[in-house]
Design a protein around this nucleic acid. Structure first.
Length: 590
RNA sequence: GGGAUCGUAGUUCAGUUGGUUAGAAUGCCAGACUGUCACUCUGGAGGUCGCGAGUUCGAAUCUCGUCGGUCCCGCCA
């Protein structure tokens, strides 16, 4: 062994240890060489301790200590003593270790960036040298929180009689939903496994098996384009329960999140807000609204349906929606400000953005010449507008109209300082009554919004065949601060209803059997009523640690283009590996 | 698939209208320094201006392509 093992860590020591001989192991955070007097700060994950080298102790030690550089790994033996000059900015600032003996366990090359510096380093470099970035406290703290979430999760679900069951990572590809990551089979050439987008089918089957309450902290994989809050592999807290209705699952879900917030932040969550999908969209322009601030949207269809402005009346007669966001106190916005807002709207598919300013001088709007005074007054009344306010008006199909205003709502909250004022708040809510189906605008085809095993709302069963788009589902999302952190549904356990569902989706019996035959088969052997929910663990940790970036809470993440800069994956493989698998690469198209 | 933005010493950045030897801070190296804690002081080294073409007498600067980072739309049952 080339080192002496530590007796304490770098965060342990305080005045009560003065006089004791200790051994520390750790990395050199910084060296301050004052000539014959040398200080090191030695770092490990528990903290930082100052070590001092005095020439009167041992001149040879002094000489050797001069070779020490940042990020070298050392063992240090010495005596704890009170500092001559205390540093109140450090937890261990009242003591130091007077070095009597030490060794360099491992020299470090000059790091590509300074570990202990506060200057921001490009993410590209930090990802390439991820192990160095992970040495920094701001990232380590997030993984300490993440670990606490694991522990609370296991404790909470265990206390509530859930059983953790591991489901396969190699499973059957299902063409529904996100793109699968595929894994070729060597023993069965030409055939492929898929990595799970979620263990959905297996957890339902475990209900058929009678496990009654299942949970798992599980990796999921989706081969889709990435975002600040999306990685190709991510972690779910997956949950399924038997003999339950929606309220049972909501209750377990709330209890879980309450435990997490209490254990990690010491925060007592009160009530969860409940709103339907329709309410969420029409009031806030999002199915995952940020309810930390109000800023509601208002429909003005009734006010303008008989006006002379053709743009509005056309939208109304086509069954579209016209709605308004009142940007309080923004009437002083310049041409440029409004152009910026228009760009935000266009990014979400708007053709343009109508606006209306109310000032002491009256109304100012590019569309006021098309509207009578009565209509303008009616709009002003409906939107509670006062002088000094700016109205942003969207007219489009129902969904797009509200989505655009929802984006503007966030933008206005940021620009007016509302967002900043609520950044330390939490707001917890459930969004329920999602539509069962989603229509593809181009093809007109109908898809399951959640997945094809989601139960329709029993009150809407009569609409299933003739007007499926009006059917609500028993599906629910948990939303915290405008982020979807969990979602689930009650599943169909009735074979006849499942057949009607496949029919509505345009899936033949053969297709359905080919895709999900094993689940359909399983559900025929005594399926209990069941349902569940899955929480996005990464997003929970993001909110708990206050970061906007999912890469901050995943130890070894990918870039936005799906590359791992540290290990260089994905990579090409040897042709013998390919031929073992019976694979040939297509030539690239030019 | 589309849009926006960025890429210049190890790092973070500046670099004017295309014009002489591409700068600063920090880090690094050397020397000095016995109470520092962003130590201080003196000196020094350090550049494929992401890469490749093009325009030009002349390109870090303009054009095209390409690679890579970030953010957004589409996509993500």
């Amino acid at each position: 062994m080339n080192f002496q093992k530590r007796t304490v860590t770098c965060g342990d020591l305080n005045e009560s240890h003065i006089g004791q001989e200790v051994i520390l192991n750790g990395w050199v955070n910084v060296r301050r060489d004052l000539g014959s007097l040398i200080f090191f700060d030695l770092r490990d994950r528990y903290g930082i301790t100052q070590v001092v080298v005095l020439p009167e102790v041992n001149p040879e030690l002094e000489e050797k200590a001069r070779e020490v550089r940042s990020e070298d790994v050392l063992w240090i033996k010495g005596t704890v003593r009170e500092r001559e000059n205390k540093n109140s900015n450090m937890p261990t600032g009242n003591i130091e270790v007077l070095m009597s003996e030490f060794g360099i366990i491992s020299k470090s090359k000059l790091p590509p960036f300074e570990i202990n510096s506060k200057t921001e380093v490009s993410e590209e470099l930090r990802l390439k040298f991820r192990y160095l970035d992970l040495r920094r406290a701001y990232l380590q703290d997030k993984f300490i929180v993440r670990n606490k979430v694991y522990q609370t999760t296991h404790r909470y679900f265990d206390e509530n009689k859930f059983i953790e069951i591991e489901t396969p990572v190699l499973m059957k590809s299902t063409p529904e939903g996100a793109r699968d990551f595929l894994v070729p089979s060597r023993m069965n050439k030409g055939k492929f496994y898929a990595l799970p987008q979620s263990p959905q089918i297996f957890k339902q089957i475990s209900m058929v098996a009678g496990f009654d309450r299942y949970m798992q902290i599980v990796k999921c994989f989706r081969d889709e384009d990435l975002r600040a809050d999306r990685q190709p592999e991510f972690t779910q807290v997956d949950v399924e329960m038997s003999f339950v209705d929606m309220e049972d699952i909501i209750s377990i879900g709330e209890g879980y999140i309450k435990s997490v917030w209490k254990d990690i932040l010491g925060y007592e969550i009160g009530e969860f807000t409940r709103l339907t999908y329709k309410e969420a969209m029409e009031n806030y322009g999002s199915d995952k609204p940020d309810l930390r601030y109000d800023l509601k949207l208002v429909s003005i269809v009734d006010e303008v349906s008989n006006c002379d402005f053709k743009v509005f009346t056309d939208v109304v007669s086509n069954g579209g929606q016209i709605a308004v966001l009142n940007a309080k106190g923004c009437a002083d916005y310049s041409r440029k400000n409004i152009d910026d807002l228009t760009d935000v709207a266009k990014n979400y598919g708007a053709k343009g953005l109508a606006w209306m300013k109310f000032t002491e001088e009256g109304v100012n709007s590019p569309i006021s010449k098309f509207l009578s005074e009565e209509v303008i007054e009616a709009i002003k009344t409906k939107t509670n507008a006062e002088n000094g306010d700016l109205l942003l008006i969207s007219s489009d199909g129902w969904s797009r109209c509200y989505t655009i205003l929802g984006a503007l709502r966030q933008e206005i909250a940021k620009r007016t300082g509302i967002f900043e004022s609520v950044k330390n708040d939490f707001h917890f809510s459930w969004v329920t009554d999602f539509p069962l189906f989603e229509k593809d605008d181009e093809t007109g085809a109908v898809y399951a919004m959640h997945h094809p095993f989601t139960s329709p709302n029993f009150d809407d069963l009569d609409k299933l065949d003739e007007s499926p788009e009006k059917v609500r589902s028993i599906a629910y999302d948990m939303v915290i601060n405008g982020a979807e952190v969990g979602g689930g549904s009650i599943r169909i356990h009735d074979q006849e209803l499942q057949s009607r569902m496949f029919e509505a989706l345009g899936l033949s019996k053969e297709d359905a059997n080919d895709k999900f035959g094993f689940l359909i088969e399983a559900l025929q052997y005594g399926a209990p009523p069941h349902g569940g929910i899955a929480f996005g663990l990464d997003r929970l940790v993001m909110i708990l640690t206050g970061t906007e970036n999912i890469r901050d809470v995943i130890a070894f993440p990918k870039t936005t283009s799906g590359l791992s800069l540290m290990d260089g994956s994905p990579s090409t493989v040897d042709t013998t590996q390919l031929s073992d698998l019976g694979l040939n690469l297509l030539k690239k198209k030019d």
